[in-house]
Design a protein around this nucleic acid. Sequence first.
DNA 1: ACCATCGGATTGTTGAACAATCATTGTCTC
DNA 2: GAGACAATGATTGTTCAACAATCCGATGGT
Lengths: 243, 243
Amino acid sequence: MTPPVHEHDGAGSRHAHTGAWIAAVLRRRIAAGLLTPGSKLSEQKLSVELGVSRNTLREAFGTLVAESVVVRIPNRGVFVASPGAEDVREIYRVRRVIEPSAVLWGTPAERELEAMDAIVRRAAEARDAGSVPGMADANQALHQAVIALTGSQTLQVLMDRVLARMRLVFHTMSTTPDFHPHYVERNIGLVACLRAGRPEEAARMLRDGLDAAEGEILARIEARAPDPEVRHRAVPVTPIRNK
Amino acid sequence: MTPPVHEHDGAGSRHAHTGAWIAAVLRRRIAAGLLTPGSKLSEQKLSVELGVSRNTLREAFGTLVAESVVVRIPNRGVFVASPGAEDVREIYRVRRVIEPSAVLWGTPAERELEAMDAIVRRAAEARDAGSVPGMADANQALHQAVIALTGSQTLQVLMDRVLARMRLVFHTMSTTPDFHPHYVERNIGLVACLRAGRPEEAARMLRDGLDAAEGEILARIEARAPDPEVRHRAVPVTPIRNK
DNA sequence: ACCATCGGATTGTTGAACAATCATTGTCTC
DNA sequence: GAGACAATGATTGTTCAACAATCCGATGGT
């Protein structure tokens, strides 16, 4: 039995708005894969486990629902979101609009170019070392750097949420193939184009890369789930009874 | 005295999740200008006025905070957001990324082109009739149609929120000048470009229009508030005691 | 095998209570 | 009289306990 003590789950601040804190804890657990997609988050269990009131937990659920990290089904409870093929398509719709636009019209200063250079160098090292998580991290970092070109806080948090959702997609796939080496090369070319002052070409390259990635992931997803959209009942994929 | 009865505030659905319902009511009141920017939303008063529990009202506040329609200051309460110059800049950062990208890479079908044609025609009629709200509505409709080109639900709701924020900006300005006739012409040209199959030119036109609009609004804002950013104390602009 | 009914469990919502914090007022000192 | 300081009152943050409404699963009848 875990005692109802507040695990010092990083982010030390003691009691800065308990609801947001609980939301952060759950967000981290979901991102780490401790809470698998489709599993139910029972109000009673979690409230005693985290040592907060059911009301406060409910508030946390609210923010998580707003972020689409969990799904609330009325009178049934909240479940960790399990994104399907349509969700993947939506994710790439968003990325295809925002990221190419960022490289096309965001004028990168020398600072930013240097940062992106460092990132792709790190990615290349990770590839040579065969480190898949290293490549994944670098890939993610590069996309965040691209978003940063817009200078918009709003777009930053939006894309952070999209990325969190993408991580959930990967969690639903038991075997994650490594298309990452492909991406490393693409990203190198992208930064080179930006350096050369050819934003149109960079944007086109980015769009092609996104199309390719979406295609691969969709193929991988739809192979496993021949009936991806038909989730009208919104039933959790696996009624996992956590613990 | 308004009785604590639930005003049948449109959007008929009877009691689909009370918290969301209350949030919708408040959202509408704010958009309508009944709740002016900077005014405080007292938990006690509103809970009795709307006939819901303080807890439920709190949940509604949570969603409104997530939408940045209201601002919560710890231990002080929630206030209707009063966007300043920096917020306007952020709004246009977002629009400059998303809207030109939508017209550039979203391939409009005949249906959508026709819809946009109808909108600009409506705008022209409103201009000839001297109807400022008519022009404003048409302008808003056109931008929503542009966003719809992406086919992305996520971007749609994002831009809806941005637009709501923009409405708040206008509410903070006592006198709203009508730059709308300018926009009508611009929009006509934009749709024409799209019809002619020149998305690059349309995108450029859209960007120029956004730049111009931002400039005009910023000038109007910074003239009134020579010290726009210094809101560290986050004090409501006017400590309005509503009623 | 199919359908209805019932019971238990979980969610949705409320009301009251308490601690913590902020704003205001009043008092004291200089 | 002006400013620092403490007491007071009001509001928010959070918890607890309760109830109605709903859903899930099992039981039982045909």
